[in-house]
Design a protein around this nucleic acid. Structure first.
Length: 388
DNA sequence: TAAGAAATAT
DNA sequence: TATATTTCTT
C-alpha cells in the first residue's frame, strides 16, 4: 500500500542519511580533537536516526519524512540543534573573543539609538574623546568578568583605550566598561588626585616593539571634562597653559606633553582655521557658543552636555542666550559678558593673530560666520572605531 | 624649561 | 581621517 511504500522510502532515506552521517563522522574523526562537539553531534544524530529506523512510531516518522533531514533534526535533535544554533551565531566576523559582548552591545546600542543620535551629532573631535582608562589591565578583567557593564556606553564614544594596537577587539571592551573608570576620575574631580597607571600588562613588550614611543593615551570624557574645567578656571584655552591645566586637573600620571597635545587639538578644533571657512557664508553653520570662557560650537556643547550628565557642564554657567557670532578667536571683548568673564586677556601671540581673526570676524559680521573644521568633519560619520 | 606648531605615527 | 605622540622652534 501507499503507507507501506512511504515507510519503506522513509527507512531508506534514513539509511542513506545515516550513511552520510557516518561518512561525515569519519571525516570529522580526523579532527576529533578540534571538533569534538561536531563529532558528538553527528554521533547523536546517527543514533537518533537509527532509533527512528528501528522504531515503529509511524506518525512520527511521517512527520520526519516530510522535511528531509532538517525536519528530523528539529524533531528529534532538539538539544543538538540548540547547541548548534549558538555556534552559528557566534560566527560574527569582527569579534575575536567578545562575540557575546558584542552582540549585547549592538542590542543595547540600538536601544540607545536616540541617545547616540546626539552623539552622532558630536561630529567634532569631542565625540572621539574617550574615557581614559587609568587601569587598563584591571579594567579589562572587569570587563571580562562583567560583560554587562560594557553595554552602558556603547553608544557614545564607544570609546576604547587603544593602549595596545593589537587589542583592537579589546579596545571596545575597555572603552565600554567605562563605568569602573568613571569612579576614579570622578573622584579626581572632587579634588582627589587620580593615579593613572600606564604600566599595564604587556606594555613593556610593546614599548620594546615600538621603541620609545609611548602608548597612545585616550582622553576619556571624564578626563576631558576635567580638562575643560581646568580650562575654564584658567580663562579658556587661549590663556591656559598645559602645565597649569595639568596641575588643575590633578591627574597623576598625566604628563605635560599629553595635556599640551590635547590642548593643541582642542584649540585646533575650537579655534576656527582661517582658510577653510573664510569665504563661505554658510548661514547654516552655527555660531560659537560661549561656554564659560570657552567658545564652542553649539553642537559640541550639546554633544558634550548630552553625553554626560548635563549638570556637569552646566556648571560652566553659560547663560543660555549667549551666542557669540564671532570668530573662534573672539575679540576678547566682543561681548560684554564675555569680557567680564574673561579673566585674563589673550596672549601676545594670540593678539597678534587678532588682526586676522578680526578680519575674519568682519567678514562674518552680520552674517553667521562659518563653521569649524569640526562641523565639516561631521560629515564623516565613521563612528565605528572610537579609536583614539 | 615650557609652550606652540608642525611632523609623524597609529 | 582623527587623534596622540614626537620633534622642532621660540
Amino acid at each position: 500500500m501507499d503507507f507501506t511504500d512511504k515507510m519503506q522510502r522513509l527507512k531508506m532515506g534514513f539509511r542513506d542519511y545515516i550513511q552520510a552521517l557516518e561518512e561525515e563522522r569519519c571525516k570529522i574523526q580526523v579532527f576529533s580533537k578540534e571538533l569534538p562537539l561536531s563529532l558528538e553531534l553527528i554521533t547523536q544524530a546517527i543514533e537518533a536516526c537509527r532509533q527512528q529506523v528501528s522504531g515503529t512510531t509511524t506518525e512520527y516518522n511521517l512527520n520526519v519524512q516530510s522535511s528531509e533531514c532538517s525536519g528530523q533534526t528539529t524533531s528529534m535533535e532538539g538539544p543538538v540543534l540548540e547547541e548548534f544554533i549558538p555556534i552559528k551565531k557566534r560566527a560574527s566576523p569582527d569579534c575575536d573573543d567578545e562575540d557575546e559582548q558584542h552582540s549585547h552591545k549592538s542590542k543595547v546600542s540600538k536601544d540607545n539609538n536616540n541617545k547616540s543620535n546626539s552623539d552622532k551629532k558630536k561630529s567634532d573631535w569631542l565625540r572621539s574623546v574617550q574615557l581614559w582608562n587609568p587601569h587598563p589591565s584591571a579594567e579589562e578583567d572587569v570587563t571580562r568578568k562583567v560583560p554587562v557593564m560594557e553595554v552602558k556606553r556603547s553608544g557614545s564614544g564607544g570609546a576604547f583605550q587603544p593602549f595596545h594596537k593589537e587589542e583592537k577587539a579589546g579596545k571596545a571592551r575597555e572603552s565600554l566598561s567605562k563605568a569602573p573608570t568613571l569612579t576614579p576620575v570622578a573622584a579626581a574631580a572632587s579634588s582627589t588626585a587620580v593615579t593613572v597607571n600606564r604600566d599595564n600588562a604587556g606594555s613593556s613588550k610593546k614599548e620594546e616593539k615600538d621603541g620609545d614611543r609611548k602608548q597612545r593615551r585616550c582622553w576619556s570624557q571624564e578626563l576631558h571634562k576635567l580638562f575643560l574645567q581646568a580650562l575654564k578656571e584658567l580663562g579658556g584655552a587661549d590663556s591656559a597653559t598645559p602645565k597649569q591645566i595639568r596641575e588643575l586637573m590633578k591627574v597623576d600620571g598625566l604628563t605635560n606633553d599629553e595635556v599640551k597635545s590635547h590642548l593643541q587639538k582642542y584649540r585646533l578644533h575650537t579655534r576656527r582655521p582661517s582658510s577653510v571657512n573664510h569665504n563661505n557664508a554658510n548661514p547654516q553653520t552655527a555660531p560659537f557658543v560661549l561656554v564659560g570662557n570657552i567658545f564652542v560650537q553649539p553642537q559640541e556643547y550639546a554633544a558634550v552636555a548630552t553625553s554626560r550628565s548635563s549638570a556637569e557642564l552646566t556648571t560652566v554657567a553659560t547663560p543660555p542666550g549667549i551666542y557669540a557670532p564671532v570668530a573662534t578667536h573672539p575679540p576678547a571683548f566682543s561681548h560684554p559678558l564675555a569680557a567680564s568673564i574673561k579673566k585674563s586677556p589673550f596672549k601676545k601671540v594670540e593678539l597678534s593673530e587678532h588682526s586676522h581673526s578680526e578680519e575674519r570676524a568682519n567678514h562674518s559680521e552680520g552674517a553667521v560666520h562659518s563653521n569649524s573644521p569640526a562641523s565639516s568633519s561631521s560629515t564623516h560619520t565613521t563612528t565605528t572605531s572610537p579609536g583614539c
